[in-house]
Amino acid sequence: MQDIIEREIIIKATKEQIYDAIAKPDQVVLWFPETLEGNYTINEQPIFGFGENGKNQVYIVDAKPHSYFAYRWLPGANNFLGDVLSVPNTLVEFHIVELGEDSCKVTVKESGFKTLSADYMEQALEQNSKGWNFMLGRLVKYIETR
């Protein structure tokens, strides 16, 4: 099974601006979680709030201005409150690399999917979007009644 997700994007902003957007509690809530409770600093476990979609406690692993920020969490879960390090989790790392004047490449790498159980992933999928089985169940019903 795939253990790592890696995505990247080019952003026309300085590395300071991008780092602050990720690492400053008053800025990160403007594009990622809707709310942030607790201390958003290394070794702390603040809570990301996603409105009706739940709350997720995260563990801040590292923060190096203006190039690196990392945290651990339970991906895809609707809700997780508790000690992130006590359960299987993934590591999310942001890397900011300057390309030229006011342009940077931002890479996000999430790793550790192999530590998650199939049951966990199935539950997370089902919680989030009743998804495939639900849709297929409805489809089969629809077809049978035609």
Partner: peptide
């Protein structure tokens, strides 16, 4: 499931 989970993320 695993593949769908990853692609969703």
């Amino acid at each position: 499931v695993a593949k769908m989970f990853i692609s969703k993320l």
